[in-house]
């Protein structure tokens, strides 16, 4: 039995679950409206008992996702301010090393070198996923709330914002869906080095071999720390 390294604690894993379950529901209840002629969308709405039910479910799922996002921001702030975690341990912040990693990886992809980039806790791929969702939350929740309460928002904003929200909600939804269905699913499922699935989202831990492979710099740091403590 090889050693297990904690990557995501239960709290963080649940945040992921409370993000992707509403996400899937939002896609199923939203896309039949984005594509009102699609036959598949008709089946989905028929299964849900009509567009009015689908709209209701969409808003419930949206509320859960927004609450989860607010919780996540508070969780990060709590760790920063109350628990005084140093900024250097905010491993998701983009650094210059990410640019170098992209360059190294592209050279590797193009057979210009056999060297693969060595990642710390989060690769630039994972950082992209995180910040894409972060940006997407503001666009989707902001525009979604305007569409949910158009008359109320029109007391604060000019009418053109309703149109902008309509465009932004519809277009960003497609981008988010494509990014998840293609990019995220490739990186955590269909990538032959990962296939059939990266189980860390529910296990929370990685084995030593996985650590060596995917997060060698983090493993080095952990081992160095342990050595220093001995």
């Amino acid at each position: 039995m090889s050693r297990e390294f904690l990557r995501f604690n239960l709290n963080q894993r649940l945040q992921h679950v409370f993000m992707f379950v509403p996400f899937i529901i939002l896609v199923f209840t939203g896309f039949p409206i984005k594509f009102p002629d699609s036959v598949f969308g008709g089946w989905v709405f028929a299964f849900m008992g009509g567009i009015e039910n689908a709209r209701f479910i969409h808003r419930i799922a949206a509320a859960i996702m927004i609450i989860n996002f607010v919780y996540h921001v508070l969780y990060v702030l709590y760790n920063l301010i109350v628990k005084r975690a140093p900024l250097s341990q905010m491993y998701l912040l983009p650094t210059m090393k990410d640019a170098r990693d992209i360059k190294t990886n592209l050279r590797y992809f193009l057979f210009l070198s056999d060297e693969r980039p060595k990642f710390h806790k989060f690769s630039y791929i994972e950082k992209f996923d995180y910040w894409a969702v972060f940006w997407g939350m503001f666009i989707m929740a902001g525009s979604g709330l305007i569409l949910w309460f158009p008359v109320e928002f029109s007391r604060l904003l000019p009418g053109v914002f309703i149109q902008i929200a309509y465009i932004a909600h519809s277009d960003e939804a497609l981008l988010a869906f494509l990014a998840i269905a293609i990019w995220h699913f490739y990186n955590v499922h269909f990538n032959p080095r990962v296939w059939p699935a990266n189980k860390v989202w529910y296990k929370g831990t990685l084995t030593e071999e996985e650590m060596e492979h995917e997060h060698p710099l983090e493993l080095e740091e952990i081992k160095a720390q342990e050595k220093a403590e001995k």
């Binding site: 277009d171 981008l175 494509l178 293609i182 990538n191 032959p192």
Partner: peptide, 28 residues
């Protein structure tokens, strides 16, 4: 705004798809 989103989506997906295909190509 509409065109901004079209370009953003096309640009992002082009980069992500290229990354996926190159990655898979090297592995294959």
């Amino acid at each position: 705004v509409e065109w901004g989103f079209i370009l953003l989506t096309a640009g992002t997906m082009a980069f992500l798809l290229a990354h996926i295909l190159l990655d898979f190509g090297r592995w294959a």
